[in-house]
C-alpha cells in the first residue's frame, strides 16, 4: 500500500500512481454520483491522514453526521461564513503550541477548508479574503456545484448565466433563468496573491493530483476550485457525472488552470473546443434553453463568453495572453 499518493513524487503521469488507500471512507449521507466528493476523495489521497478539514455549512457538512465520520483525519465544522477563520485559529493554535513545546512537530496537521460555492463565493468570502491576506498557510477546497445545493439548489453567485435554480426560475421576467454571470472566484483569489490557486475537475484526476502535489511544496494559501457536477441539482442521471465534468472542460466552460505566485497557466488546453451545447444539453437546469423552443440568444451568449475567454489564452503554452 502506498499512503498517501507517494509523497516522494513530484508529479504523476498515470492513473495507477494514484494512492490505493482511501482517506474518506464510504457510508456518508452524500448523494450517489457526487462530483464534489469524487474530487475531495482524490485530493485527500494527496493530503493524507494528518489533515483537519475545517468545514463551512453546505452539503459536505453531512459528511460527519453524529455518530459517524468518514475521515481518517480530523474534522471541525464551524459556521457557513467563517471556515477560513476557523482554519486561521487551528493553524495558529498548532503553530503556537509547537513553538511553546506543547505539541510535537510530528503531530502537526494540514489545515484544509472544505466549503461549497455558497460559502466560498458569497457568505464566507470576507473571511477567506482575510485568511489569504494574512498569508495563512492553509488549503482551501471549494466543491463548486454552482448553487446552494444543500438547501435545494438556489442561486449562488457561482450559478452560471442561463442555469435555472429554485430561486431563478424561468418566467416572464427571465427566459434564461439566472441572468447574472458567475463570479470569477479564481481571479478574485488570485488578486490576493496567494501562493497557489488552481481549478480542478474530478474527471481529470492526474491533473488534480499533480496540482495538490505541487501545492504541497508551497507555503501560504493554496486554493482550489473543484468543478462539482451535481446530479441532484443539475438534474441528470448520476452515472453521467464524469461526462459532464469532462464536457465542461472540453467545451471550455471550465478551464483547468493554476496560478503560482500569480502567474496563470492553463494545465489543459483542448485542441479544439466542443460547442458548449454538448455540455448544456441533457442537464435539467439548462433544459429551458432547448425546450420547448430553443433560446438561441442565450446559447450564443454562453458560447461567446467561452470564446472570449479562450481568445485570451495562448493555445500551446496555456499562458494568459
Amino acid at each position: 500500500m502506498t499512503s498517501p499518493t507517494s509523497p516522494e513524487l513530484e508529479s504523476i503521469q498515470t492513473l495507477k500512481q494514484i494512492a490505493r488507500e482511501e482517506f474518506i471512507l464510504p457510508g456518508t449521507s452524500i448523494c450517489g454520483g457526487c462530483g464534489g466528493l469524487e474530487a475531495l476523495r482524490l485530493a485527500a489521497k494527496v493530503l493524507g491522514p494528518q489533515t483537519v478539514f475545517v468545514n463551512a455549512a453546505g452539503c459536505f457538512t453531512l459528511l460527519a453526521t453524529f455518530p459517524y465520520t468518514p475521515f481518517k483525519g480530523s474534522w471541525l465544522y464551524t459556521t457557513m461564513a467563517s471556515a477560513a477563520a476557523g482554519a486561521q485559529g487551528v493553524r495558529d493554535a498548532l503553530d503556537v503550541l509547537m513553538a511553546r513545546g506543547k505539541l510535537p512537530a510530528k503531530d502537526d496537521v494540514e489545515v484544509v477548508v472544505v466549503a461549497g460555492d455558497g460559502s466560498t463565493y458569497d457568505i464566507g468570502l470576507s473571511a477567506t479574503s482575510g485568511a489569504i491576506f494574512r498569508g495563512l498557510n492553509f488549503w482551501y477546497f471549494c466543491y463548486d456545484n454552482e448553487s446552494y445545493g444543500n438547501t435545494g439548489m438556489q442561486m449562488s453567485s457561482s450559478t452560471p448565466y442561463g442555469a435555472r435554480t429554485a430561486t431563478t426560475p424561468v418566467g416572464i421576467h427571465s427566459q434564461a433563468g439566472t441572468e447574472h454571470g458567475k463570479k470569477d472566484m479564481f481571479e478574485i483569489w488570485r488578486a490576493h496573491r496567494p501562493a497557489y490557486v488552481a481549478t480542478v475537475s474530478p474527471r481529470f484526476p492526474i491533473d488534480l493530483t499533480n496540482k495538490f502535489l505541487k501545492a504541497k511544496t508551497l507555503r501560504g494559501a493554496k486554493l482550489f476550485l473543484a468543478h462539482a457536477p451535481c446530479p441532484t441539482g443539475w438534474l441528470y442521471d448520476p452515472e453521467r457525472t464524469a461526462d459532464y465534468a469532462r464536457l465542461a472542460v472540453e467545451t471550455g466552460m471550465f478551464a483547468l488552470k493554476e496560478a503560482v505566485d500569480g502567474v496563470v497557466t492553463h494545465t489543459y488546453v483542448p485542441r479544439r473546443h466542443r460547442p458548449v451545447e454538448e455540455y448544456l444539453q441533457g442537464q435539467g437546469r439548462y433544459r429551458h434553453l432547448f425546450e420547448p423552443t430553443r433560446n438561441d440568444a442565450a446559447l450564443r451568449q454562453i458560447q461567446d463568453q467561452v470564446d472570449r475567454y479562450w481568445a485570451g489564452v495562448h493555445e500551446t503554452t496555456g499562458a494568459a495572453r
Partner: peptide, 19 residues
C-alpha cells in the same frame, strides 16, 4: 482578524485545537 465573526471563529477553533 477581518471581523468579530471571524475573530470568534478563530478563537473557538484554536481552543478546539487545544490552545
Amino acid at each position: 482578524l477581518d471581523s468579530e465573526h471571524s475573530m470568534l471563529t478563530a478563537a473557538g477553533a484554536a481552543a478546539a485545537a487545544g490552545a
